[in-house]
């Protein structure tokens, strides 16, 4: 090794060549992708005022499990902001009498997205009136 000190590295020559057309193609495709992304976000940002989460809970299927009953649900956030720590409460009513109440807390329901989960009851929910809703949320 003639150049052992490492203080200078003339061997790393800058390859006196022109850029291949493929490099320009890659660069231009990348530019298009980044510009599209920025454009999309800017368009969203311009359209969005001060958005709030809009949570809708839809009860899914009832299932019998070992020692209980499961109610699956999907929670949709149609708002422009994410909701955090969302308690989903489900109550079973016999006429106006509360039979059973269960609650589960979801970490996040992102904006314009959905999350799913399930609540586990002791009594068979099939025979009662079900009330399921998101009881609140935190701003993340």
């Amino acid at each position: 090794m003639p150049d052992d000190t490492g203080s200078a590295k003339p061997s790393r020559k800058p390859l006196g060549r022109k850029a291949h057309w493929l490099e320009w193609a890659t660069g231009l495709v990348s530019a298009a992708l980044v510009l599209t992304m920025v454009g999309w976000l800017a368009w969203q940002a311009a359209g969005e005022e001060d958005g709030k989460p809009e949570l809708v809970v839809q009860a899914g299927t009832f299932e019998s499990t070992e020692g209980g009953h499961r109610i699956a649900f999907t929670i949709v956030n149609r708002g422009q902001r994410t909701a955090a720590a969302v308690p989903v409460t489900a109550r079973l009513y016999d006429q106006d009498r509360l039979v059973e109440e269960r609650e589960v807390t979801l970490d996040y329901v992102p904006a314009l997205s959905s999350t799913s989960g399930a609540l586990l009851f002791g009594t068979d929910p099939g025979t009662y009136r079900l009330d399921i809703r998101a009881s609140g949320y935190e701003d993340p």
Partner: peptide
């Protein structure tokens, strides 16, 4: 001192390396 030759305009490097 690799790929880009000295004297290459900034925006060349931006399109060929930074953006990809």
């Amino acid at each position: 001192g690799h790929e880009i030759e000295p004297g290459t305009p900034q925006w060349h490097a931006f399109i060929r390396f930074t953006l990809p």
